[in-house]
Design a protein around this nucleic acid. Structure first.
Length: 414
RNA sequence: GGACAGUUGGGUGAGUUGGCUGAAACCACAUCCCUGCUAAGGAUGCGUACUCGUAAGGGUACCGAGAGUUCGAAUCUCUCACUGUCCGCCA
């Protein structure tokens, strides 16, 4: 959630930022008004309650002194009636505000480039030269078929479209990648964590998936529970509604989880192959930091993800997202895109974001700085998406006959 | 899933004939004092959120969540959640 007080005090500045992210200024104007309305409603309500409380205290005294209370009771009854009305007004104002406020995306950092979609993203650098092939490199689904690695049809049979089955070497490589990623992350100082793959609505709201993106989530029927769309949700919310100490920060976490996404709105995109599935494996990094630490940790996380790709000898590039392509919770995001020779293009394999205090405000994660409680900064990033890494290995390590070499660093894991 | 018990501040834990308890006490923590040795003693402070105020200091809400009874509820009633124990089931 954005800082509404900031919005109120520096409206022009704040709205300029959100316009960069594609929010129209009318909605912002409305948000500002709703916030002001709520404040006023609460002020009058609290005043009345203060009076009521005072009278009730007096009531106790009267009783003890055995004085007559009929007159006082009449007064306090009248006040009570007034309060019921004020309460209703305040509650409505609260609900109206939340409806808009929780759907408002994070402010982008000032450094974020202007732009409307991925076309406007800025390439920061390329790492490793793509290998040149003496033959026409195949796409991963063709290789999958040749090697018997992936069964798309049986995945569909077991569940529905966009589910797949990995067999034999592919299944082993999937597991090897998970272990490799976790080991590297651990080397870099991230604590390995194993978390529930199902989280409740409060947690999903904490990291920003709810209420706005409910359609993207698999919900458990009849329960207040959802399959997680990313380990970012359980890892970040580990500290939901907690007050940490300065000493504990930064907290660096890594965890493997499957991720479940409905991929609503991406009908027709990447329907072929394993790029966009309803279920995929991912190893995630999450950092909980002070505002001062977050910049440096962010860089470290980007470098770590890039380093993993380099160790796998996978060519990739580092891209800074423009305002329009930025996710809901992110203040700034850097994507890592891996080279896919079969598709002849770079495809996203990791996305690393600093949400600043946006998630912290929703999830109520704070730390004690002296006497004050300060919102933490939360960061998250993939290191890496496992299925897409498998795809990248298939395409980059393919031979002319369709066989696939095992990357050097993975050999000890297989 | 069934039966019973419980759910209080960072922790332990008082408080159940409704008002004087936003909450004793102890621990932890912070600052200061004392002390000269890796320890002890003393003083003070110390829940969260919102809100008014330059500040000092006020106000409102919160004792698992929600609803109710009442002038007034941590204390009474109801619903739900969670924890514990016993039973059932199970990797």
């Amino acid at each position: 959630m954005i800082d509404l007080k900031y919005l109120q005090k520096n409206f022009d500045e704040a709205s300029a930022k959100l316009v960069k992210k594609g929010v129209d200024s009318e909605t912002l104007e409305r948000l500002k008004e709703l916030f002001a309305t709520l404040k006023e409603a609460n002020a009058t309500l609290e005043e009345s309650k203060a009076e009521q409380n005072k009278m009730s205290k007096l009531f106790g005294e009267y009783m003890r002194e055995k004085k007559d209370v009929t007159e006082l009771k009449a007064k306090v009854d009248a006040k009570k009636e007034e309060i019921v009305g004020l309460q209703e007004t305040a509650r409505e104002a609260q609900q109206a505000l939340e409806l808009v406020a929780l759907a408002m995306p994070n402010f982008p950092d000032d450094s974020v480039p202007e732009g409307v979609d991925e076309e406007d993203n800025v390439e920061l650098k390329k790492v490793l030269e793509p290998r040149s092939f003496e033959f026409e490199p195949k796409e991963h689904w063709a290789l999958a078929e040749l090697n018997g690695w992936i069964e798309f049809d049986r995945g569909v049979k077991l569940a529905k479209s966009r589910f797949a089955v990995l067999r034999g070497e592919a299944a082993r490589m999937e597991r090897a990648l998970i272990n490799f990623f976790l080991d590297v992350n651990r080397e870099k100082g991230f604590e390995e964590v194993c978390v529930p793959f199902i989280n409740n609505a409060t947690m999903l709201q904490g990291t920003g998936q709810l209420p706005k993106f409910e359609d993207d989530l698999f919900k458990i029927d009849g329960e207040d529970l959802y399959l997680i769309p990313t380990a970012e949700v359980p890892l970040t919310n580990l500290y939901n509604d907690e007050i940490l100490t300065t000493k504990e920060l930064p907290i660096l976490l890594t965890g493997y989880t499957p991720c479940f996404r409905k991929e609503a709105g991406s009908a027709g995109r990447d329907t072929r192959g394993m790029i966009r599935q309803h279920q995929f494996d991912k190893v995630e990094m999450v950092a909980i930091t002070t505002p001062e630490q977050s910049e440096e940790i962010f860089k470290m996380m980007v470098e770590n993800a890039s380093d993993i790709l380099t160790r796998l000898e996978l060519p990739h590039r580092v891209v800074e997202l423009c305002g329009g392509d930025l996710g809901f919770s992110a203040a700034t995001t850097i994507d890592l895109e891996v080279w896919l020779p079969g598709q002849n293009k770079y495809r996203e394999i990791s996305s690393i974001s600093n949400t600043r205090d946006f998630q912290a405000r929703r999830a109520k994660i704070r730390y004690k700085d002296g006497k004050k409680n300060v919102l933490v900064n939360t960061l998250n990033g993939s290191a890496l998406a496992v299925g897409r890494t498998l795809v990248a290995i298939m395409e980059n390590y393919q031979n002319e006959d369709g066989s696939i070499e095992i990357p050097e660093v993975l050999k000890k894991y297989m």
